[in-house]
């Protein structure tokens, strides 16, 4: 195996416990540049907690998370974002009172300090990028509408767009197609394949059809540990995975 520095993300010995309950237990995995990795596992397996740990929302009890050579466990959330990690939440998390345009504009990576925000001007670069992003998220006709009135699927896209406009090297998506219609799912899968070009993606998803349509590699979590890792065919054939999903 190549040395850790070749990976975009290297998670080693990651552990977090809440009052003695180990939600993530000595977890290690490596993510390559340009890879789409899907995390699956039963409820309570620790999937969302892993994303929380990487983006700094939860403090690790032990272990390390290295991202492009930087140790994320010692950084604050906004620093992790600025280092190039984007995170989408399970339920769409957008600013309902602001327009689609403003939602994207606020996510544009400029003027992020207090005084930078005071001095921020909406120039042609910002408008251009926002409009382009809206087009790729199928939202070009909704720019001036408050985001609160979008459909559930459109809100999911908007949030993905808000992440992409930051141009992150690692994109983490928590159940991006939950609550979407069949056609929206297909569109989202296409979208993800398109945006993957220059970045790595870590996705939590339950929908196996969707997983098969996008994943390079699948990782199965159970009780905070990786019990199987590899191609979809490999994982599906794994006895332990079947046991976990069907129960003993």
């Amino acid at each position: 195996m190549a040395s850790n520095t070749d990976h975009l993300l290297a998670v080693e010995g990651l552990t977090v416990s809440f009052d003695g309950f180990r939600a993530v237990d000595d977890l290690s995995f490596y993510l390559d540049r340009g890879e789409i990795r899907v995390v699956i596992g039963p409820n309570g397996a620790g999937k969302t907690t892993v994303l929380d740990l990487i983006c700094g929302r939860t403090q690790a009890t032990a272990g390390s998370i290295r991202f492009e050579g930087a140790e994320l466990t010692r950084m604050k959330e906004h620093q992790i974002v600025r280092a190039g990690v984007g995170r989408k939440f399970q339920t769409p998390s957008i600013y309902e009172d602001l327009t689609v345009f403003e939602n994207l504009e606020l996510s544009f990576p400029r003027g992020r300090s207090v005084f930078g925000a005071l001095a921020f001007r909406r120039d042609s670069e910002v408008s251009g990028q926002v409009e382009e992003m809206a087009r790729s998220m199928f939202l070009q006709d909704h720019l001036d509408r408050p985001a609160g009135i979008l459909s559930h699927g459109q809100k999911q896209w908007l949030e993905i767009g808000m992440l992409l406009i930051q141009d992150p090297a690692l994109l983490m998506l928590d159940e991006p197609v939950a609550g979407m219609s069949v056609s929206e799912r297909a569109k989202t899968a296409e979208l993800l394949r398109r945006i993957i070009q220059r970045r790595s993606v870590l996705v939590i998803e339950h929908d196996m059809g969707f997983v098969e349509s996008i994943a390079d590699k699948v990782m199965v979590l159970h009780q905070g540990r990786v019990i199987s890792e590899g191609s979809i065919a490999h994982v599906k054939a794994d006895r332990r995975v079947v046991d976990v999903y069907l129960g003993h």
């Binding site: 983006c55 929302r57 959330e77 906004h78 974002v81 984007g86 995170r87 939440f89 998390s93």
Partner: peptide
Amino acid sequence: DRVRFSGYAV
């Protein structure tokens, strides 16, 4: 949280 994870020090 969304603001925080858009890179702002809330």
